[in-house]
Design a protein around this nucleic acid. Structure first.
Lengths: 106, 106
DNA sequence: ACACTATATTGATCGATGTCAATATCTTTC
DNA sequence: GAAAGATATTGACATCGATCAATATAGTGT
């Protein structure tokens, strides 16, 4: 966790990001996109992959995109999704333990 | 994210852990405990800190403890919470980007 | 313009959950 | 064991969210 207590605003933002990751279907969508060799996946394949209806998958992709976790690009009829490069790393950092100095120096 | 797509079971487990972190009050509780010099906090102080009723704070602490994020220790009348050492690091790893070899070698 | 396919939106339903008041349980102290 | 304080549980309520069927929108080709 962070070195200092989170403010209400910081906590609200982080919670919103975490909320996007707090669903099995969304995690599987994200991992499927990330696991593709070229790092991108078409929405159409994702519908088959997670075993949910097309509207439901569309909804989850919108949530992931809204949380900044997936990038969206339309190519003709199809929409391709890519894992946003920095967003996941940012969340990782937010979960990082406090620097050792915090406890040692007090 | 991980190198291979998550299975349904893996996704369900990860989602449950993320869910525990997907609430502003719980994040603030966790960060307050982590930010204490000795790494632990009494439940009584946490009630004041997050501005929620005592039952609500108790509920959130139970969720965090149930998710393995907080350790619980009773000392007399008071209950002290400590951030579980490995749990947060595990979640960090779960969010880690796939190893570079995954994309380069294909 | 029309048909066809892919994706998004709407509306409805049902279960999950954050919250608090009231109450219960646990622990120390007298 | 009674009293007091800390923590946990229960019950109720309101809101949120995952889901799907139905429909709408967007883009491609004829």
């Amino acid at each position: 966790m962070c070195d200092a207590p989170l403010s209400e605003a910081e906590a609200t933002d982080l919670a919103a990001a975490m909320h996007a990751l707090a669903d099995p279907v969304r995690l599987r969508l994200l991992s499927h996109v990330a696991a593709r060799p070229n790092g991108e996946a078409c929405a159409c394949e994702l519908v088959d992959v997670v075993g949910r209806s097309q509207p439901t998958v569309s909804h989850h992709l919108k949530v992931l995109h809204g949380a900044g976790l997936l990038e969206r690009e339309r190519r003709g009829t199809w929409v391709w999704y890519r894992v946003a490069p920095t967003r996941l790393a940012d969340l990782q950092n937010a979960l990082a333990p406090p620097p050792p100095t915090t406890r040692e120096t007090l």
